Amino acid sequence: MLWPPTVIAVLVAVRHLLLDPNGHIEWFGRDDVYAVSMFAALPMGFAGAIRVAKKSRSSAIVLGACLLAGCLCLAAMSHGISIPENLLAITIARALQSCLTAFAVANLCVGIASLQSPDHPPSNVVGAGQGGQHFLPTWAWLLFGTATIAIPATYTHSAAESLEKKLQESLSSHRVALAWEQCSQLRRLDPGATTADSDLAALEGNLHEQKVQLESEVQQPMPRNISIALIGRRITSLVQLDRNHEALGWIRPMMSGRNFHPISLDFYGLCQQRLEQPAESMRGYERSLKHWERQPDSPGKRNAMISAYKGIAFAARQLGNRRLEEEAYQTLVQLAPTAENHFLLATSYKEHQKTSLAAENAQLAAQLDPLYAEQAQSMLSQLSRDHFSCFLVPR
């Protein structure tokens, strides 16, 4: 059975040619979008290839080879083709590349298989329909064609919406390297999208400049007489680049002893959070909280405790400790009753099926900051649908 290796080899080759110097897949943006687009086109490709092979086995191989050369050339030219920055153009480009690749793979597979089994041509693979046994019925072609376009388009739209939210989160938390990666992917999924009051092309360029600058800074050797300020700047740069393991190497010596600095505890919790180590993240934030609780009141203490409670709540969620998560968010709201914190508490209540409390805090968030009105309304609508009655949700 040569079909699976042939399909995989061609898809890998096309993907390699689509990669730009930064490792981004032109037109497709992400591997999952690329895979969905390609596999959605394969049924129609194989249906067409079987039809060609029934007429002439050798024609299927020749056509497959020509189409393969064409899809490889198109993939190689993707970096130099100037496509208008709109969703329709990029969707057409993806569909063209997918269909060309699928037909190439299918003709090669069917042609080779028919030559290897000359006494058993693949005549029974396609069922009878209008036009006899040699042709698929019209409805089948329409079904395959619709699937080739609709499945990738729907998936890509959903992926773009999710990626846009993640990009906003990365920008707000100053994750420069991750934001640049997400912006580059989103630009290839939906070039017309805008984020942070900027078009994606301009935002991608700005983020790339910041990333290059940060990478240049962390490559500079540290002076012999190193200061806390320089260490703090190096840690901040590494965290913004999501080089968390390297950042932890600078953080750990500052967590105890004569070099102790309280900010190191917060950074430790953050790095472990991004490394998906919730237990260690919890330990860092709890140590930070205990330290600041012993200090006299000040704006610095308040800000540090706000950060610690957010970190503890997030780690508790990852660890499945619902009670601790709610308690942390409740204390956070008491400490800083902002729209953001009320919405965080509302989200926690929503996930824990506490409908009335979730709705109450969502409404408070919208009242405190109109920017949360749309998110609050979306949550209230979802709560009403999930619980089959709007009477459970206060209005």
Rank of each mutant, 00 (worst) to 15 (best):
S114F: 01
S117G: 04
S117L: 06
S56H: 04
N124W: 09
K54C: 03
P122Q: 14
S114V: 00
P84Y: 09
S58V: 07
S59V: 05
V125N: 08
A49W: 01
L87K: 06
Q97T: 15
I83D: 01
A95R: 11
P118V: 06
P122F: 11
P84D: 10
G80R: 15
L67A: 09
P43W: 03
L63N: 00
P43F: 02
F46C: 09
I112M: 04
L74F: 14
I90M: 11
C99H: 08
L74A: 14
L96W: 11
G64Y: 02
L63W: 06
G132I: 01
A102E: 11
S98H: 09
A75V: 09
V126C: 08
L72Y: 07
A76C: 05
L96C: 13
I112H: 01
L108S: 03
R94Q: 06
L63F: 05
T101M: 10
A102F: 01
V62D: 05
T91I: 07
L108R: 02
H79S: 14
Q116C: 05
G45S: 03
G111T: 05
I112E: 01
L100C: 12
E85V: 12
S82Y: 08
K54S: 10
C109L: 02
P84S: 06
L88P: 00
L74G: 05
I112D: 02
S78D: 07
N124D: 12
H120Q: 12
R94M: 10
L96V: 15
G127K: 11
M77A: 15
P122L: 14
V62G: 02
G64V: 10
A60K: 02
Q116V: 02
A53V: 14
G80T: 15
G127F: 07
V125E: 12
P122I: 12
S58K: 07
L68H: 03
L68M: 15
M77V: 09
I50F: 13
G132T: 12
A53G: 02
S58T: 03
D119H: 12
L68E: 05
L68K: 01
S78W: 04
L67N: 06
L115S: 03
R94S: 03
L72G: 03
A128C: 11
N124K: 10
G70R: 03
L68D: 01
E85Q: 14
L74P: 00
S59L: 13
T101Q: 08
L74C: 04
Q130F: 14
A106W: 04
V105D: 01
L96F: 09
G70K: 09
S78T: 08
S98K: 04
R51W: 12
A113R: 06
L68R: 04
G48T: 11
L100D: 05
S82V: 15
H120I: 10
K54F: 08
G131M: 02
E85A: 15
P84E: 13
L88V: 12
V62P: 03
A95K: 09
I81S: 07
A95N: 08
A60P: 03
S58R: 09
Q116P: 02
A60F: 00
L88M: 12
D119S: 07
S56A: 13
L63I: 14
G132M: 12
S117P: 00
A106V: 08
G129R: 01
A102V: 05
A47T: 15
Q116R: 13
L115D: 00
L67P: 00
G127D: 10
A75Q: 05
G127L: 10
N124Q: 13
I83A: 02
K55E: 14
V110K: 00
K54G: 15
V52I: 12
A60Q: 02
R57D: 06
